[in-house]
Design a protein around this nucleic acid. Structure first.
Lengths: 244, 244
DNA sequence: GAGTGGTCTAGACCACTGT
DNA sequence: CAGTGGTCTAGACCACTCT
């Protein structure tokens, strides 16, 4: 999507503080789940008022970069937290409830990136990628088949992992094992027809309509780190999107 | 969707001010596009500091209830503004560009609400509704067929309008003619198979996969005012969703 | 009790708009 | 020019957590 607009020449103080703090987050100075220094410490260190630091951190909290607790402190957001678990999973049962998906790995291999991957993941030609194929089981039934592509460079050794060792949720793994924190994602949805392989995996007839979810996941500074394509049987589920 | 949680017993001042202002917005005290009184006026009237009013209005701006301009003032948000035009339309061309849809009315009739409509629109049994059917033309080709359902009570006389008199965009009409401002919407997406009628309208074969977008549009206080169901040919377009 | 973030105030200065 | 919203400061009080 058309993103990223030119920055104004002069930035407010709080925005500059925010930039500095986001840079320090990106550098890994504080790991996911760890506490940041307090507002007053930052205020003193940067020689600005506490209110200015507050505004900077409030924006980081609004962007889900950190979470704040009164009386406890400010912590780097983490996908390992229960609250953020499946934060990016938008399939709901028709009755509106949301039950969390299980994963069943089909394959996990290392490959050379195709042209599409190099473009989506901002890779050089010939770069290595790990490609994971898996089924997603919701409420006991296979509801989606998913292809996940990540650069080997950032996730060294992932391509050599055995399927049984891969967890249900990948983003916590990205965080803890590779220090890659997924911040936001963009999804492109289409209706497509099931091919023979998909139809068999999902237990539907060839040509059945499937919801394709094409996701690019990004870390700090909008750098893409994962490309994922799911094809979902939406007979009993829907993808939820809130507009405002 | 599971929405609306219990309010805390004691609400901060700024939140109370926000509630009061939203109530006054809802009452129609200021029409879309019109200016609100200034921060300092509200501060004096409610006997709170200007900073507290600022925080209340900032939240209303974040919710797209109002728009603010430095030097000019605060204005009630309106779908008639260019910026908000097609704000809720999420279909993009495959190349990422977004061109705006034209509408071709198929029919516009008054009916008795079915059980589904009474439930979706919070109506009494036997209530009258206006049902509009139309095609959406994007880039010269028919890309979607759409059914729109609104309560006659709120949109009196809409059901008697001739198709030629209905504009491309309905939300500006809702605003100017009926004083109904759409604030937010929820969409549920599925992949479905085209039936004979849809296939003919969209120029695809029967059974082709279509993206169904099922939207409930709401005004202030999450009151539903429109139910809309679109079935889209996504061969050359995708539905965009940003996750954070 | 010391330390955290959340609320609220009061006042200053600024950029920008309309006249 | 007066009036608007945007930024920044400094300080007070609060609810809450940890030890």
């Amino acid at each position: 999507m058309p993103r990223g607009s030119a920055r104004p020449v002069v930035r407010p103080l709080f925005a500059q503080i925010e930039d500095l703090l986001v840079d320090r987050l990106r550098s890994g100075e504080w790991k996911p789940g760890e506490p940041l220094p307090s507002e007053s410490e930052f205020a003193e260190a940067y020689r600005v008022s506490q209110g200015t630091v507050r505004k900077a951190i409030a924006r980081m909290a609004a962007d889900n970069l950190v979470v704040r607790f009164r009386g406890r402190g400010t912590f780097v957001a983490s996908h390992t937290n229960e609250r953020e678990h499946s934060h990016f999973f938008h399939l709901h049962r028709d009755d509106g409830t949301k039950d969390f998906p299980q994963s069943r790995i089909i394959s996990c291999r290392r490959r050379k990136a195709g042209l599409d991957m190099t473009r989506r993941l901002h890779l050089d030609a010939g770069a290595d990628v790990t490609v994971i194929e898996r089924l997603r089981v919701i409420g006991g039934a296979v509801r989606a088949i998913e292809t996940i592509m990540v650069p080997e460079e950032r996730f060294r050794g992932l391509g050599a992992m055995r399927g049984e060792d891969l967890p249900n949720e990948l983003y916590p793994l990205y965080e803890t094992r590779y220090g890659v924190r997924v911040i936001r994602a963009e999804e492109r949805l289409k209706a497509v027809a099931a091919d023979a392989r998909e139809a068999e995996a999902l237990g539907v007839t060839v040509g059945s309509p499937l919801l394709e979810i094409d996701r690019t996941a990004m870390t700090y500074a909008d750098v893409p780190v994962e490309w994922r394509r799911s094809r979902c049987n939406t007979e009993k589920h829907f993808y939820f999107s809130a507009l405002r």
